[in-house]
Simulated scan of single mutants.
Amino acid sequence: MSQKSETPALLLAFLITAGLLGGGAWWLTQKVGINPGAIFSSNSASSSSPNSVNQLPPGAKEFTQVQNVPEGLFSYGGSTTWAPIRGQVDPLLQTAQPNFRLRYVDPVSGPPGSTAGIRMLMRDELAFAQSSRPLTDQEYQQAEQRGMKLKQIPVAIDGLAVAVNPGLNIPGLTLEQLTAIYTGQVTNWRSLGGPNLPIQPLTRPITAGGTVELFSEQILKQKPFGPNVQLVPTTTEALRKLAASPGGIYFASAPEVVEQCTIKPIAIGRTANELVSPYQGALVPADQCPAQRNQLNTAVFQTGQYPLTRSLFVVVKQNGQTEEQAGEAYANLLLSAQGQELIAKAGFVPVR
C-alpha cells in the first residue's frame, strides 16, 4: 500500500481511539462518580512524595458490598478530629463486617493525634492510622528508612473554624489578622475594629495533633505562638474557657465548633472583602440554641471557597501484609456510599 493511502487510514484509526478514550473518561465521571477535582487537597504533601494522594477506587454502596476485607482484630489510632467519624461509622461497620474487628489505641505517652498515630504506625503498633493532615516528606523518608512505604487515601474534607466569645461583635477575620493575633502582634480587639478589650487567644499545644500542626503551618508559617497565647489540653476545656472569656478566641475542627451553643463561630477570609462563614445562613443566636443550631456550610468547604480547609486521610502501610489489606479495606468502607453518608452525618464533607 502506498504512503498516500496509508495516511487516511492511520488518521481514522487515531480519531476512533481518541473517541473511545474520551467516551470512557466521560462514562467514569458521570456513571461511576469519580470526581478528579475532589481527590486532591490544596494542602496535600509536596509533589516530591509520589504517593501523597491516591486515586479513589470505585465505591460500593453498602459496607456489606466492600470486597477484600480481611478477618481479624486490627489496631488503629491517630487524629482526635476523627472522633465523630469513628462514633458514626464503627458501630455500623462492625455489624456489617463482624469479622473485621477494630480497636482504637491511644499512644503510651503523650496525647493522641495525627503525628502520634503515624509514628505508632511506623513502629508497627497500628495496622493503619487516621490523619487530619497530609503526610510530610520527613515521614515518607522515615518510613523508607524502616523498610516500608506509606500511602494516604483521602476520605473526607474538613475545615478549621475560628470561634470567639458570643458577646464579641466583630464581622470576621482575615488570615493575616489571625496570624497577627496568634503571633502576639495584635493584642487588643480595638485594633481589629472591635471593642477596647484584650485578646485572649487559646490553643491546644503544638504537639496535640494535626489540627494545631496545620494551623501552625498555614497561619503561623512555623512561627511560635505569641506570649499571650494560653495553652489548653482539650477542645472541650478550650470551649469552656472561651465561653467565660469576653476577649477569647479559639480554633478547632469545624464540626467541633459550628454547632456549639456557648461560643460564636466567625467568618474567615483571604481578604476583608471575601469573608466566608463556616455555617449556613444567618447566625443562630445563643438564646435560640439548642432548639436551633448553626449548620456546617459544607458547600464552601467542598469548593475551597472557605480558606481553611483540609483533607482527612487513612494512612496505609504498604508492606504486602494483612495490615496493608486492613488499611485499604477501611478506606474503601469509608469511600462507599454508606460510609460517605455517615461521614456527612458526622459533620464532615464527603469527597464523592
Rank of each mutant, 00 (worst) to 15 (best):
A18C: 14
S79Y: 03
T271F: 02
P227G: 03
P278K: 13
G269D: 01
N54D: 05
L92C: 03
A326W: 11
K4A: 14
T211L: 00
L126Y: 04
Q218N: 07
Y140G: 00
T115V: 06
G72L: 02
G59D: 10
Q177G: 01
S48K: 12
I206A: 01
F100P: 02
E125A: 05
V66G: 11
L173I: 06
T203Q: 07
L160P: 00
S336E: 13
L334N: 10
A299G: 02
P265H: 11
I249H: 11
T95R: 13
V232C: 02
S44M: 13
P107G: 09
P285W: 03
G147H: 14
I343Q: 12
Q152L: 00
N35A: 06
V276E: 02
Q325V: 00
F63L: 13
S245W: 05
R352K: 11
G194P: 10
V164A: 09
I343L: 10
V164P: 07
N332E: 14
L342R: 15
K241F: 10
T262F: 01
Q65W: 03
V66D: 14
E341F: 00
I181D: 02
T136A: 03
S132V: 00
S5Q: 15
Q230I: 14
S49A: 07
P98Y: 13
T236N: 12
E217T: 08
S277N: 07
G117E: 13
R204I: 01
F225H: 06
A243F: 04
F301C: 06
S47E: 15
Q97N: 12
Q302E: 11
Q67M: 05
G159A: 15
V32N: 15
L28S: 04
W189N: 04
A326C: 08
V186G: 01
L197G: 08
V53G: 00
A9F: 14
T309S: 02
N43L: 03
Q141D: 08
Q67I: 12
M1I: 05
I170P: 00
L150C: 03
P255F: 06
P36H: 12
P246F: 08
P285L: 01
Q292I: 01
S191Q: 15
L173W: 07
A326L: 03
Q145P: 00
I181M: 03
Y250I: 02
V105M: 15
G226S: 05
T174C: 02
I249C: 08
R310C: 00
